[in-house]
Design a protein around this nucleic acid. Structure first.
Lengths: 348, 348
DNA sequence: TTGAAAGCGCTACCAA
DNA sequence: TTGGTAGCGCTTTCAA
């Protein structure tokens, strides 16, 4: 005696038998197919009663097999979600994803089974694409695997990617923060404050999202006739001591950094040279969520939660209408004022 | 031209045709059925080649329908996960759940579709139990719905609950922190330090997990012949100003609080009376994750991550062997030393 | 209005 | 060693 009622799940035929109707009648009642084969209220009620009595619940797998639909959306991250969730990278995205999925009545599958031993996750393993289980998937991750992305696309699998990813020969539908415009607006705000000579602090990462920042920055600088002679602007990543010396003595009055990490490094380097932010140097950062602990940088805000929501909407739009062409969407980033921008100091 | 290759997924029969074998041969090769119907390497290879050429991937729904298994574990929370995930309540549980699921090759379904408009989530809605989609589910949440739990159990659905929940007429399999033992050990450590007169600070929550703490505390106090004349020990929740006065002037040298919240309240109340922790009063807390910000309380540590892992193991054990009776598991809590316990002050 | 029956893609059994 | 075949539970014609 283990106390567990181990009845096997009732099926439509059981319901049909109990209700004294045919299985197809049950199906019609269950799937609420209003137009097709109108069921008289009285029959309908008999079926419903039988459903209740038996505790019948439709079998998702069978439905799926027939309908090719699940109301199941996949979420594939190329790294484990939760360990990173805390540091806000995945977190806000997931918040939006969950929120929107709940609103529109979809469930979410977290594809965890695909974990390889190295901590990376692969979509295709021993030839099986688990993602097929869902009606479509949202992919995200820093270490996106391009090959898998390409294959997925070529297989005609329905997905959207959070963050821009370019793959030759495929048009990956992406939901992307509009870094280009945000970077440009940051440059504009600096110019409006009177800054003419800027420096750019570049990460050592080659990725689309950084390309976008760089493009936006470069174009704005050129368009506004500003000057940037920094190595970062030329393509050199990170900050060297030599360059910090040069910066400290040079005519630049503002720096735009690609990341908070770089900005922090800059702050330390300047401090070591007796300079402070923003009195001696204004600094803006092309990254942020608007609520970082520590210094309040002037920065852009990646609307992560909204991106998550939009990703779900974009995905579902295609799930529910597969003829719809896949499109990428650019999501505007807000700019938040911090305490690291001031007017240009007087020339030394 | 939308650039999307919309080929419908190839199936086994396509592979079979291309390889010039029967569909069942393909099935045997694919599902790697080693023992049954040994396939000669050469046939096998032909199939594999065809699979590769077509980019064949097994259809999960169909497999499911056949096998009655998904390698899909449900996670049902009675509230939205991510908004709360941060404050560590769900978070660490999910960490363990994800980690373990990944290790053993299961995917996770987050049941979000069940969200009602009031923010609560219901398992049964319009007679459909979405959980059926998964092979079994882990349930968790502060606001567990007892009725749904009971119904789920009566329907013979496979699940485990994180945290103890008692429901009349059902034996809910739970993975539970061993609060009773931890509370007892905390009392013991206080007694070992020389404390004879204790006070108990009680939350206004009636829930199994608090019952366990109370039981453990009470039994230890009685067993060790200690004295507790506090209202909390008697069943009165929270701390009144009157009692704080009494405590400040009374013979008690140590307080055991059910939550950090209460302990913080106590600290403030004592401070207002010129008393400090632990110099004038030792305090231990029956809650914690070992890394709270702020004061370092002497407390127990709920091994949330481990509980998540154990929940998955317990669930999968039953998924893979449904005859196995459902069992609850008690998980030991560590005690962590903080800065809030000292020896008893000399009597005033 | 109802029911019979044909599959969805797969696995597993049975015969050859 | 192979292939034919019977379903898994469901939806959806098509006939009655």
């Amino acid at each position: 005696m283990n106390g567990v009622p181990r009845k096997s799940a009732p099926k439509q035929s059981d319901v049909a038998r109990l209700a004294g109707v045919s299985q197809s009648a049950v199906s019609r009642v269950i799937s609420g197919d209003v137009d097709a084969g109108r069921i008289p209220p009285e029959t309908r009620q008999r079926v419903l009663d039988a459903v209740k009595e038996l505790g019948y619940v439709p079998n998702a797998a069978a439905r799926n097999l027939r309908n090719k639909r699940n109301r199941l959306l996949g979420v594939h991250t190329f790294e484990a979600v939760f360990p990173h969730a805390r540091d806000d990278f995945y977190f806000e995205f997931l918040l939006g994803i969950e929120e929107r999925a709940e609103e529109i009545g979809y469930d979410l599958v977290l594809f965890t089974s695909t974990g390889a031993s190295d901590g990376r996750r692969r979509i295709y393993r021993d030839g099986t694409n688990r993602l097929n289980l869902a009606d479509g998937s949202v992919l995200l991750g820093v270490a996106t695997d391009r090959e898998e992305l390409a294959r997925l696309w070529h297989d005609g699998y329905l997905f959207v990617h959070i963050g821009r990813r370019e793959v030759a020969g495929a048009e990956i539908p992406c939901i992307v923060p509009d870094y280009e415009s945000a970077a440009a607006r940051i440059v504009e705000s600096l110019a409006a404050r009177g800054h003419r000579r800027l420096a750019y602090l570049r990460e050592g990462i080659e990725q689309e999202s950084y390309d976008d920042r760089r493009t936006g920055y470069r174009r704005a600088v050129e368009r506004l006739g500003l000057v940037d002679r920094s190595p970062g602007f030329g393509g050199e990543p990170w900050l060297s001591e030599a360059w910090l010396d040069e910066l400290a003595g040079g005519p630049e009055t503002a720096v735009v950094a690609e990341s908070i990490r770089l900005a922090e490094g800059l702050r330390a380097g300047l401090a070591a040279r007796g300079l402070s932010i923003p009195a001696d140097m204004s600094v803006a950062v092309l990254e942020g969520s608007g609520d970082e602990p520590g210094h309040r940088w002037d920065c852009l805000v990646i609307p992560r939660k909204e991106i998550g929501r939009i990703a779900i909407d974009a995905l579902v739009a295609r799930v529910e209408n597969p003829d719809r062409p896949p499109v990428s969407e650019l999501v505007e980033c807000d700019l938040v004022a911090g305490e690291t921008i001031a007017g240009p100091r007087e020339t030394r």
